[in-house]
Design a protein around this nucleic acid. Structure first.
Lengths: 370, 370
DNA sequence: CAGCTCGGTGGGAGCGCTCCCATACCGGAA
DNA sequence: TTCCGGTATGGGAGCGCTCCCACCGAGCTG
């Protein structure tokens, strides 16, 4: 240890502040948290002493006695116990709704984080926590071993709770946390009912927005590229689109399933075009696949949006990088992440609170592709 | 507090393990960390007791006495105190070497994290830390207030040190941390000499690789799109390219400066093409601008790579999303981040260690654009 | 064989904090 | 005046851990 203490050496302690203010440790403590029954005059004195000494509470000491860490974990939890073989497609793994559950193969080193989706979530979480003097602990739980580690960490109370982005429907972590009584909030509705809070997007509404936009443009031969249908969000998107189309009197339209990668978008588009050369409108379940579709459309000499109008989903960076720029359904990921964090803190504060869900409405961002 | 303790309630303590093993607390402690002078027999007994009781050390208690948090911070530190007006360009802010120092305007909510660069860094850090049972605390310090908060957090020893990704040359945080004796490691060479460890890329070599590749392809009218030249890394890339060209007998070639965004790449390309319609080779300081260049090239009917060969930099997701796929200079960001973390832990362990630097060699990833 | 060193072990203090409890003091009712 | 309630304050215990120091016995040296 020797001079390890050097760094934080002689941080003033409660005792120091108490001495400076001429009161007891207990009183200073009361002023610092809660201010319960303390003479206003003394409160001022204490506060002055705090600033004078530059006192900052020692987290460890506080955590030791309160059994609270004053920290939350941001967990990105990967494939379930039954990890299937990763998708053969080795395309770019940018974009794609992380919350969905696409399984992209590993670039040897947490491909999950390379997902811009993750960045947006992190940003939302950090942004919310910071004014409260908190910072998230970043944890990755993509293997069973890692998951055990994360679970232990949480169960031992090293963090007060977890904001959980689960990328796979079979992920056992949410259930385990709930069972262990660890406060947690999920980024999407859990596939199986679980007494846990979550935030989600009204995927159906998003898809409806897309359908209506395409229809309003005058598209009459519409098709879709879905995401993997074992992902709840994708089912919802597909269903929402179907609904809207049916309501408009066109219950049938061709559709192909992709796996969220750009390459799968290219393949899907090629397939669609081969079978339905006359199509004039396309809804794609995420921006990255839409970008792929755009590539193929261009190769085959179709003008976008004149010949074929294309609407994506997510409003990720890919949407803005595509040419023409993608018209897309925007998910307010940052706000969703912030809300998720808010819910978590609420649960930490009041453990008996019943689970809540907050559903966000998507919006259509109109650019050039439709 | 009431039933807050519920969660971690009755975690077995050292005392419990000691009782179970029939030894003293001190001996168990010795076995758990370091195993110094403990009878092998007893060691076994203790280890058995640990697994039997399911003991996990209480971080807070340990931190309280060791004055070590057993945690490191991953800090993304933004613009300096003298924040200039953000770049007028509001293009996508995806990609672009975060370590450089481009200033992208804020999307109200930590645009930094949306940078895939950040994701790769986080992945590298987490990957390295995890086997050691550690997890980084994520901190954003893009405003002076936030920076103060981060600084305080670190100085108080709430984390043992920081892995620092500074996005702006004028960022005062590195110097402050060094001065305060907080262990830190930077992602790039500090603009001003500072006794601090860092990892970096041999940018010159990367640019040389690009130049040689272009030359070997037979390109004779080469041009470049640089990044902002107030960024060290970009200076290096420009200089490296210049060197290689000069060595090949072509000391002069047109070049334009961009600001790392896709749009600026489009502008730069248009400008270059207008003035030098005959160019047949292009080196762009990052992939995103290269993607923009590709757009313009296509619009103007130039075939890539037949008419114009294009080489990017970074090997970001943009490189793989572009069509044709970008040939680019790869930065091993994940490995760099891991090394950065390794260095940090070394410094935490041995505070007197002198600063070290580790420079990584880039490699050329040949795809279709050149 | 006394005196030592030294590897192995246990006891105790104390890290900085919160919280319980005792104490002191105030004013108003009996 | 005495007694009581309530409010403001201080003292002390103890959270779970590490580390210092005392201890003890075995094996060595002089």
């Amino acid at each position: 240890m020797s001079d390890r203490a050097r760094t934080a050496a002689h941080s003033p302690t409660l005792e120091d502040v108490a001495r400076a203010a001429g009161v007891s440790r207990a009183t200073v403590s009361r002023v610092i948290n809660g201010t319960r029954n303390v003479d206003p005059e003394i409160q001022r004195t204490v506060r002055d002493a705090v600033t004078a000494t530059g006192y900052v509470p020692n987290r460890a000491a506080r955590a030791l006695v309160t059994r609270r860490a004053d920290t939350v974990a941001l967990v990105v939890s990967g494939a379930g116990a039954d990890t299937g073989p990763p998708d053969a497609d080795t395309g770019p793994r940018e974009d794609g709704s992380v919350h969905g559950g696409e399984e992209r193969d590993g670039d040897a080193g947490g491909p999950l984080f390379s997902d811009p989706f993750f960045g947006r979530i992190a940003a939302g979480v950090v942004e919310f926590l910071r004014p409260r003097g908190m910072h998230p602990v970043l944890m990755l739980a993509e293997s069973p071993a890692a998951r055990d580690q994360v679970f232990d960490y949480l169960r031992r109370g090293h963090a007060d709770g977890a904001v959980l982005v689960s990328t796979h429907a079979a992920d056992p972590l949410p259930a385990r946390l709930v069972e262990a009584g660890v406060p947690a909030v999920l980024f999407a509705r859990p596939p199986r009912p679980l007494p846990v809070s979550y935030v989600d997007l009204a995927h159906r509404d998003g898809a409806r927005l897309a359908a209506e936009h395409l229809l309003a443009r005058g598209c009459r031969r519409v098709a879709t590229v879905n995401g993997p249908l074992d992902v709840l969000a994708c089912q919802e998107r597909a269903a929402g689109f179907q609904d809207a189309m049916a309501r408009a009197g066109s219950p049938y339209f061709p559709s192909v399933e992709g796996n969220f990668t750009l390459e799968s978008g290219e393949r899907a588009m090629a397939q669609l075009l081969a079978r339905h050369p006359g199509l004039d409108g396309l809804f794609v379940a995420n921006d990255l696949m839409a970008q792929g579709a755009l590539h193929v459309l261009r190769e085959q000499g179709r003008r976008v949006p004149e010949d074929v109008a294309v609407v994506g989903f997510d409003d990720s960076s890919a949407a803005r990088a595509a040419r023409p720029r993608l018209t897309t359904v925007r998910q307010p990921v940052e706000r969703m992440a912030a809300e998720m964090t808010r819910l978590l803190l609420e649960h930490v504060e009041q453990p008996d609170r019943s689970p809540a869900s907050v559903i966000f409405e998507p919006t259509l961002v109109t650019r050039h592709s439709a």
